[in-house]
Simulated scan of single mutants.
Amino acid sequence: MVADTSYGAVDFDGSAAVDTDRVGLSKRFETLFLRGGALAVFAVVFIYFSVATPFFFSVGNIGNVLSQSAIAGVLAIGLTVVLIAGGSNVVKGGIDLSLAANMGLSAATYATLLQAGYGDGVAVGGALAVGVLIGLVNAIAVTVAGIAPLLATLAVMNVVAGLELVLTQNTVIPASSDFLSAFSAYGPLDIPILAYVLVIVTVLATAIVQYTPIGLRLYAVGEFPEAARASGLPVKRFVAGSFLASGLCGGIAGILSVSYLSGSTTGAGEMLLPVVVIALLGSVFSRRLVPTITGTFLSAIFIGCLINGFQLLNISSTLVNGVQGVLILLVVSATTILRRENR
Rank of each mutant, 00 (worst) to 15 (best):
V258F: 04
V142F: 14
A175C: 10
D19V: 04
V166Y: 12
V144S: 10
G267Q: 08
N158H: 01
N158D: 01
I303Q: 15
L97W: 00
N170G: 13
V65Y: 00
V81N: 04
L97I: 00
F57H: 06
F57K: 07
I71P: 15
E341Q: 12
L194N: 15
G94F: 06
P213W: 12
V197K: 09
Y186I: 09
A101C: 11
R339V: 05
L273S: 05
L113T: 00
A205K: 11
A127F: 02
Q210L: 06
V323I: 10
R340K: 14
V201I: 13
S6F: 15
T153P: 13
S283V: 13
S26H: 11
A85M: 03
N102T: 09
S283N: 10
V65S: 03
T335H: 08
T206G: 13
I193P: 15
V41L: 15
G222K: 04
T206N: 13
F224Y: 08
S316T: 05
P149Q: 14
V122E: 04
E270G: 07
A139Q: 00
F12H: 15
Y118C: 02
Y196I: 02
L330Q: 03
E164H: 08
M103L: 10
I214K: 03
D120G: 08
L281A: 14
L244I: 10
L298N: 08
R343N: 11
G14I: 06
L204W: 15
G251S: 01
T212M: 12
T318I: 02
L105P: 02
G121K: 07
E226T: 11
L218W: 13
L330G: 02
A240T: 08
V235N: 10
G131C: 00
F238D: 03
S317Q: 03
D178G: 09
L83Q: 14
K92Q: 09
L281H: 15
M103G: 07
E164R: 08
T109P: 01
P174L: 06
V320H: 09
R287C: 05
I95M: 14
L128R: 01
R229I: 06
I255N: 01
L204S: 12
L97P: 00
V209R: 12
A182Y: 10
L306Y: 11
I307F: 06
T202V: 15
A141N: 06
L312S: 01
G135F: 05
P274G: 14
S286C: 00
V23H: 13
F302R: 13
P149V: 03
S246A: 04
A175R: 04
N158F: 03
S299N: 09
D96F: 07
G251Q: 02
L128A: 00
N61V: 00
S15E: 10
G232D: 06
A182T: 05
E341W: 05
L99H: 06
V258Q: 10
S176G: 09
A17S: 09
I62W: 14
V275S: 14
G304D: 11
G117H: 04
E226L: 08
P225G: 10
